[in-house]
Write a protein that binds this DNA or RNA. Structure first.
Lengths: 340, 340
DNA sequence: TGTGGCGGGACGTTTTGTGTCCAACCAAAC
DNA sequence: GTTTGGTTGGACACAAAACGTCCCGCCACA
């Protein structure tokens, strides 16, 4: 049964919404026994007219009857509601999960895709697409978008598609190079996104592990400066979330730094910062780009990460409290709720 | 799985149609490998624009890719098509059955509702609703509709609803009283339909079992004559189908007549005529109203009957060959196909 | 005999869908 | 090279559907 719903979600993305509203309508009438259109509209928070269209359809399906005293379910309608009960539970489990996560971490929006990215590449792709959809929906003309690197972000970029050319948008890497493979670098991802959106992009080439002096010098460079300013003014920030130890290894941090991280309780990494289980920043990478205050200032911060193994890291970054939107998968969402 | 599909058929009839077209599109691309929009539109008999909207959606769902050489399914799209195969069969099994019956009996249109009227009153109601929908869709302003009696017809009338008032339509009984209970008489049904349609109706009160002289006399009555003329000029005829022996008993035919019917191989009854298994008329009831030639002349003849037990009778009447539309249920449809 | 809530009709406005063309592009055939 | 026949994707005007809103007649109940 799960399978057919998954298929339908792909083929009819708004099917579930429609199904939910129609079920809600029937269910409410089922509970009330007899109820009028206006009362019903008020209690379901729908406008009278759209409710009416639905009611007409349900009526033509023989699920409800109208009389001058109000509306009642037919025998078939009642039977349908009873049969749907278990299905609805299963069906909207994910939306419930989304709500739960949203409230647990005080987020504006949470999107959960079914499955576990750790176990299936298809789920990972799905996560990317969900992320790209969220980004697309968040974009307004003229926005500057700062993106981080990582494999999830790369997936997202690959799936991105824009409804129309976005000639006055900018995509920029949120930070300079962080010593990852080219495919997963923020620069690459920003340019891929920009190409797919028909938007413009800037790159930031600042090597890792700079001495303080070298850093100051390079920041004096006008064209570096310019990009950095743009990054710091980004309205939208999109980032992945990683496990601290894994990220430290991937970025080839020195052993002593790694030990220090562990000692400080670093669990998660996001936009170059390392967080402990309480969402406190315990370490930062020294590269040019987005600072914490810029993230706080950004209007939309979108975190994308999935897989059961990342659940704890996600919880930790969410506790940091500056994300607005989280895109994750079912396994990670449940795991994150465990670590609250 | 069957259950959820049945539920959706009730709750989201419109979305399932959409699902079918989208599946058709994907399936076609799946088979062709690479194909262009226009070619595809032609082969699916869709206009280019609506196909295009669908394609855009499917693309945004990550199910297909476009290139300058045409469109191809993504891995996910191919997987989806493969996974859908059994579901589609289940989902649209009835449409296949409809096509099969339509072609077997050379009909214009066949509607099959799921289930068996013999076993469930809900299926019977559903059959009635399907019939009423067909009738509604067949109606044009000014049409005269001749209806027969019977319990199925009564169900149909009870479910009938018109989108708007049909002030210039007429509903008439196809024949005079046929000795059934009032609820199931053609007169009652015609008036019920007319009320629900906001249309006008005429009644025909001619008792059964009249002598030839009495029949001739009553037919001279101007207002009887008038109704009979209207009946004979009906553009639409709607009738039930019965089992010959049952009908003979219900109409209290004399025993010798009944034996004669059996001897002649009468299997089915419809609009007062009895048919053998080849669809040949072997007997007729002597009452005023629709004659065979009127049925041949009528533009739309709609037969409504369901239940496994009626399958053979349905096949026999359909062989008679003057029906245009058949509304039946799954059990009867399958049974009818057995008796071909 | 009022009165409040009911379904359903009506209508103008907005939004969406649709038919139709066309530009730009590409690959294969010529 | 160049033509040809295919492709996608942009554009736009028009039709159709959806929607918000208001109102009417009806009925049950007070």
């Amino acid at each position: 049964m799960r399978k057919i719903i998954d298929i339908q979600k792909k083929l009819l993305p708004d099917l579930l919404k429609v199904m939910e509203t129609r079920y809600d309508i029937l269910h409410r009438i089922y509970l009330e026994g007899t109820i009028g259109r206006r009362t019903l509209a008020a209690s379901l928070e729908m406008t009278e007219r759209v409710l009416r269209s639905e009611l007409e359809l349900l009526k033509s399906q023989g699920l409800l009857d109208t009389a001058s005293t109000g509306m009642t379910l037919t025998a078939g309608g009642r039977q349908l509601v009873e049969e749907m009960e278990p299905i609805v539970k299963e069906l909207f489990g994910l939306s419930d999960l989304e709500d739960e996560v949203r409230e647990a971490f005080g987020l504006k929006r949470v999107v959960v895709v079914p499955g576990d990215s750790d176990e299936s590449a298809l789920v990972k792709a799905e996560l990317g697409r969900a992320g790209s959809r969220v980004l697309r929906e968040s974009l307004s003309p003229g926005d500057v978008v700062a993106v981080m690197g990582g494999s999830t972000m790369a997936h997202m970029a690959k799936q991105f598609s824009a409804p129309s050319q976005m000639k006055d948008n900018w995509f920029v890497p949120a930070r300079g190079g962080l010593g990852e493979s080219v495919d997963y670098q923020a620069n690459t991802i920003a340019s891929e996104l920009a190409k797919r959106a028909g938007a413009r992009y800037r790159m930031l080439h600042v090597p890792d592990h700079l001495s303080e002096e070298a850093y100051q010098t390079i920041m004096q460079e006008p064209n570096v400066r310019e990009v950095v300013d743009m990054i710091r003014g980004a309205r939208i920030v999109v980032h992945g979330i990683g496990d601290a130890v894994t990220m430290a290894r991937r970025r080839k941090l020195k052993d002593e730094t790694r030990d220090e991280l562990v000692k400080d309780g670093a669990l998660a990494e996001a936009f170059g910062y390392y967080f402990d289980r309480h969402g406190k920043v315990v370490h930062r990478m020294a590269t040019a780009g987005l600072r914490l205050e810029d993230i706080e200032a950004a209007e939309v911060v979108i975190g994308i990460a999935g897989g059961k193994s990342k659940g704890e890291a996600i919880a930790s970054v969410m506790r940091f409290g500056h994300d607005d939107v989280l895109v994750t998968d079912e396994a990670a969402a449940r795991e994150a709720l465990e670590h609250i």
